[in-house]
Amino acid sequence: MIMHIDKIHLLGAIFSFVILAAVFVLVRERHLKEKYSLVWFLIGLFILVMSIFEGLIDWFGDLIGVYYAPSAFFALLIACAYLLLLNMSVSISHLKTHNKALTQELGLTKLRLEELEKKVNGSADD
């Protein structure tokens, strides 16, 4: 029983290190913006802390009145995942808005360019 718990905690610690290292590398290589990395660092740290301090999950389970402590942990993680997804939807919405404005502006600018080219070519012929 003790061995089993130790294993899962070890796995959790390894997993959190992988997350933290991956986020670190992604930010350094400019694949991930610092702004978005913050929340991932926090999640990595959260899992790390949870796996190092074994009593934390039980304490948290007691706190919110859940008898089976690990399910409290899952509930917490799912809540975090939801918030993260909401955050992503907001980011995508912003991107869509910007993308739409840029697309329109590009279309209108191309038209202006066409007009200008016509005008320049026209006056060159005179």
Partner: peptide, 9 residues
């Protein structure tokens, strides 16, 4: 006048 949008909006 024709505006060509580069993506479908």
């Amino acid at each position: 006048q024709v505006v060509d949008l580069p993506c479908n909006l």
